[in-house]
Amino acid sequence: MATDTDIAPAPTETDHHDHPAHLQHHFVSSEQQFDSAKLGMWLFLITEILLFSAMFVAYAVYRQWHPETFVAASETLNVTMGTINTIVLLTSSLTVALSIHYIQKDEVKKCIYNLGATLVLAGGFMVIKYFEYTSKFEHGAYPGGMFDPHGGHYAQLADVPFASQFFSIYFVMTGIHGLHVIIGMAVIGWVAVRAWMGSFSSEYYTPVELTGLYWHLVDIVWIFLFPMLYLI
């Protein structure tokens, strides 16, 4: 993870009195370090976007070839749960944006509360996801080769050709997205602990800001996944 490795403050080599503790020796100023970290993070984000792009291409191609299948298969997904999850994730985006807002104003406590709220919401997202997954597994809606739908409204999919492709794409996309949520939770937890230890202030809050950017990207991916998989 770019966020973990490149921005933690290094032990300074020179003991100069106006040298901030977080400034690494090869940077001239905090400003330069902050700008570099942020550009690095945006570059990392576009690698993430391109990572997901291949799955979007797969979705687009199979939808183009088998539109009826995708309509039929997406009707078996639980729109209520999907909508709730969307709102949960959007709210978590708000809380993480607020945490940056508060750290910029030096209100460390409020920042930590908001990071904590983000963690709770992310956990909630994963729990809902877990129930969605298990309800599908119960009816044999596995990805690809193990696809064997039975029971409930899944039974009708047995006669729909290429329905297994939809579920492959569904599980791969949401699975990799879920993996990003879990990684995000770990990073947010780490940032919250460091904020608790007093590492951040309005002078230095780069890790909070970068984690926020990452979390918003996870949110954006879901913003697209939700209508693609659940609604259309």
Binding site: H216, L217, I223, F224, F226, P227, I232
Partner: peptide, 18 residues
């Protein structure tokens, strides 16, 4: 329409939250 609404939402997130 669905993709358009999603794109609008994503734009909002990128411009303001990010």
């Amino acid at each position: 329409v669905a993709i358009g609404i999603a794109a609008t939402k994503a734009t909002l997130v990128v411009l303001y939250f990010m």
